[in-house]
Each structure stands twice: as C-alpha cells, then as structure tokens.
Amino acid sequence: MMRFMSWTAFLLGSLIFILPLLGMTEFSLSMRRGVYSLDAYMSVLSDPVFRATFSYSVMMALFTIVFGVLLVVPTAYWVRLKMPELRPVIEFITLLPLVIPAIVIVFGYIRLYNTSSWLPLTGSTMGTNILLMFGYSALALPYMYRAVDTGLRTIDIATLTEAAQSMGAGWVQIFARVILPNVLVAVLSGAFLTFAVVIGEFTMAALLNRPAFGPYLQLVGANKAYEPAALAVIAFAITWACMGLIQLVTRLSKHTRAQR
C-alpha cells in the first residue's frame, strides 16, 4: 500500500519533468514536415548572432567565476579562521540575492551607476560589462559561498594554516598553495553552478543592454517556431553538463582521497 502510494507520487511527479523534456526534444526535431531532422539545430548553430552572444555569455561566466572565487574563498576562509562571530552576518548577506529579485538589484545599478552618477559604469561598454559581471557575481553569491563554506568545513583550516605558517609561508602562499587546492572540489562545484546560472541569464543582460545569450534567446523565442525548442535542448544539455561535472569532480576527489 505504502509502496504503491510512493510509486504513484514518484511517477506522477516525474511527469512534470519528463513531459516538457520530451516535448521540447520532439519539437526541436520537427522542423522539416513529416520527418525528424536536425534542421532546427543547423539553423541555430549557423546563426552568427548565436555564436557571438553565446561566446559573450561564456566569457562573462568565466570572468564571474574568477571574480567570485577571488572574492568568496578568502572571505570564507578568513571568517572561519579569525572572525567566526561574523558568520551569521556573512551568511545573511549571501542569502540576500535569493530574497531581493534580480530585477530590483539591476534597477538599483542603473540608478546608482548611470552616466551622471559618481561612478558612471554604464557610460562605457567596458564599464557596463564590468557592472554586469558584478551583478552576476551577486546572483551567484549564494551558490558560490555555500559550496566553498561547505568545502572549508571538511578540512581543518586552522591546523593547515599554522603548519604553513610554521614553515614560513605568507598569506598569499597559504591561500594559493594550501587552502585553494584543498577546497578545489568545492570551488569547482561553485564554478559550475555559477556557469549554469550566468549562461542563460536574461533580466540583467537585457536591462543593461548587453548582447548576451539570454536576450538572444528571447529574440529567437519571439520570432521563430522550432529554433527555441532546439535552444532549450542545448541549454538543458549545458545545465546537465555543469551538474554532471560537479558530480564528476566530487567523485574523482573522493577517489584520490581514499587512495591517500
């Protein structure tokens, strides 16, 4: 009885996921009348705007990851080591992006950093790119911080730090040679999550008028029939790859740790 109800709940619930995935896949293959074909994918992949916006978003994701790692790892490390009393404050701040909608945050940016403000970031292309990267970093902050903080919890950073100090290492060396390698898996997890969040982001990029993948998706969605489904399949594959890579690095690291 119990098992029957469990199966029912599980299978019915799974329909919410399975049907849309089936639907988009089927639709993406149906561009040519009567037969399945990859025409929609061809059409998407041969579009120069696709390539331009996609590589723009990949670059933004990479910069966001680098910035996020440099911002979060030292902070999480320092708070755990020296200022544990700050943890509640930091955790609160890192959860803010889940509470304040992205559209509100970017609205604030436009108001604070417009051409007539004290820091006119939106006045130049480079400035806007940087602002967008900061925005993405803010969006990814909850994921990045949680991943890194969890990673730090599993290692004894106080002992590692003292050991490194007793051998004469400075802070930069401790960070780069001792802490970072030990939380590499956590950092990579955070990085892939960040990538998944940034790659298709729409609101911020659209409102800051940057030629990112998200606004491109919107444009295609408004004007084409089969290409959006193909893009959805591609986006799903990217998300899946990011999560798969997180699993992979976690598993690999467990493997090497067991051998040690």
């Binding site: 849309p20 995935l21 089936l22 639907g23 969605g221 959006p228 893009l231 799903f236």
Partner: peptide
C-alpha cells in the same frame, strides 16, 4: 539540473509541450 533549468529555455520547453 532541473532546479537550475529556468528562464527562457524552460518557457520554450513548455511551449513545445
């Protein structure tokens, strides 16, 4: 994966379904 599959592609998937 699914919790991170949001935004426009999600809308496309449901339109196709």
């Amino acid at each position: 994966v699914a919790s991170n599959f949001a935004g426009l592609p999600l809308a496309f998937a449901f339109i196709a379904t």
